[in-house]
Amino acid sequence: MTGRAKNGEIPAGLLAGLGGALRDAVVLTLVASALGLLVNLFHPRRIPYLAEKEYQTLVPCPVPGGEVTPCQPGDEMVRAADSLPVDARSPAQYASWHLEGAINIPFDYLEPVPQKLLDELNLRLNRRRARRLVVYGDGKNPDSGEQLGRELSGKGFRNVFFVSGGAPALREGTAAPRPEDARHE
């Protein structure tokens, strides 16, 4: 740092040698990149240099999840007067069939449940004096009902149950046993 600067000027010393440093940075980048490409040839987890297919980059929302208890479609609580059924499927599926008295809260993997629907759910719970939420979804794996149940539980709702097998099982009156059930019990 030997540069002399007049008042208000950038001292030459501060920037002196920056051209050489820039050259070093470019050389570093090129050599390290070449090394990275070379190492990939021998890497036990090597990947193709050019991606061959689209990456699955669906990013689920980190919605806080809570406890949720599985139940069977034939359980008494599913249709009990002090239970509020929640349909996690799309509005069209809800329109085609739903449990009597069910409220439709479509589950979206990317978006949290809108506050407006949560307020409506609270209102319905109070009106019905319900003691538990019984959520059912599409019955797939993962089940949208279980996912929505977790989300609602994470948002502070208590006594949240989800129907194993979802709407298809409810319509048939039986639940297909799923490996996840054992985990929750």
Binding site: A32, G36, L37, N40, I47, Y49, L50
Partner: peptide
């Protein structure tokens, strides 16, 4: 993939 292979080495 090219970015993923080179960036960490830089």
């Amino acid at each position: 993939n090219l970015a993923a292979l080179t960036l960490p080495w830089v």
